[in-house]
Design a protein around this nucleic acid. Structure first.
Lengths: 186, 186
DNA sequence: TAGTATACCGGACAGTATGTACGGTAACTT
DNA sequence: AAGTTACCGTACATACTGTCCGGTATACTA
């Protein structure tokens, strides 16, 4: 990719992230982005079709990092030395908190539909074959929905409280409340 | 209230509901509403400040009916003769399905943030002092968040599947998956 | 280093939505 | 019958979106 393109793309992403920390996604306009990124209007549209497209592409980049190594790479990350659900989720939570200024938590907390749909798809894939045993009482797709939305909300809750709780604790609480087996007992 | 006002108000609500069954809330415009309701632009704004305000006021009217009698009026509704969590929720689900063409389910399924926030507030009030016992392991406000979002998602799931399942079944599944005591066992 | 490709600029533009203003007309109230 | 109030419709200012295009600067390439 041309150096100019890389530079512009980064400027857009930076401006976008910055604005997201100041207001809601829905209220950010393309005009604000190009002003902040200090680029021309047509340049923006040469890179992204719409604002939603920008969000999509940011999601792709972000999630590529976040989900990387959650289950397959136990050596590079401390948490994944623990292959339990609790351990994997704690690992995931760390990434979500640290990536892009916790923008993921913010979008989830806002309930931004476009982002949430994207995120939920990935989570459904992740949780698909790992539902808690108790779920045999409940239609599988309903259980999957509940597990996924629960995890989203847990992240939103975490974000709104400034990521105070330890990721391990949050993972533990979540796992318990959804009915997985845990090793720790209070 | 003046008959003209009632008439106009109803025309707006009807047009709005109608449009909501045809597309997403977000994509409905004031222009469409006034055209469908066959009223003048300024008339709309004499009744509602914005489209969101219209949604708000519709919520107030709708929820007044939906939550009415869930816990306090055991004689007029069959379900509330059963004061268990499961029974109350089944009752609630019936109302949500039948009110305004299931518009509530639609909005929840869409993840419309404005509506969802409104709805969640009411649910938090309802579930506030009825959390499952298992929740003693988990911070109360987190548990409340999980319980509320779970219920929302259950409704969304129900809506997307055309309200096929019986409300009693859905209530049962939900209650079980969240860890309340149930009377029925499979 | 010269030549060519291409990304960017910036300004203009059409299209669409929002929310306000105001004089005229019809409906309700007393 | 007189006065009040809601509605109509049109026009208007504002704002955002997405496209277009000629000119300029930067980057690859031979």
């Amino acid at each position: 990719m041309d150096r100019r393109q890389r530079k512009t793309r980064k400027a857009i992403f930076d401006a976008f992230e910055q604005l997201m920390n100041e207001e809601h996604y829905a209220s950010v306009t393309v005009g604000q982005i190009i002003e902040r990124a200090d680029i021309g209007r047509s340049t923006f549209y040469a890179h992204f079709a719409t604002k939603d497209d920008l969000l999509d592409q940011m999601c792709v980049e972000m999630f590529a990092h976040v989900f990387e190594g959650v289950e397959t790479d136990p050596h590079t990350h401390a948490h994944t030395q623990d292959p339990t659900m609790e351990g994997m989720l704690a690992h995931l939570l760390c990434h979500l908190r640290d990536n892009h200024d916790g923008i993921c938590g913010k979008l989830v907390a806002e309930g931004e539909p476009h982002f949430t749909a994207h995120f939920r798809t990935l989570l459904e894939e992740f949780f698909g074959d790992r539902l808690p045993e108790r779920s045999s009482w409940v239609p599988q797709d309903l259980m999957l929905t509940l597990v996924v939305s629960g995890f989203c909300q847990a992240i939103g809750w975490w974000h709104e409280r400034g990521y105070e709780a330890a990721p391990e604790d949050l993972a533990h609480w979540y796992v318990r409340s959804m009915g997985w087996q845990t090793k720790r007992h209070a």
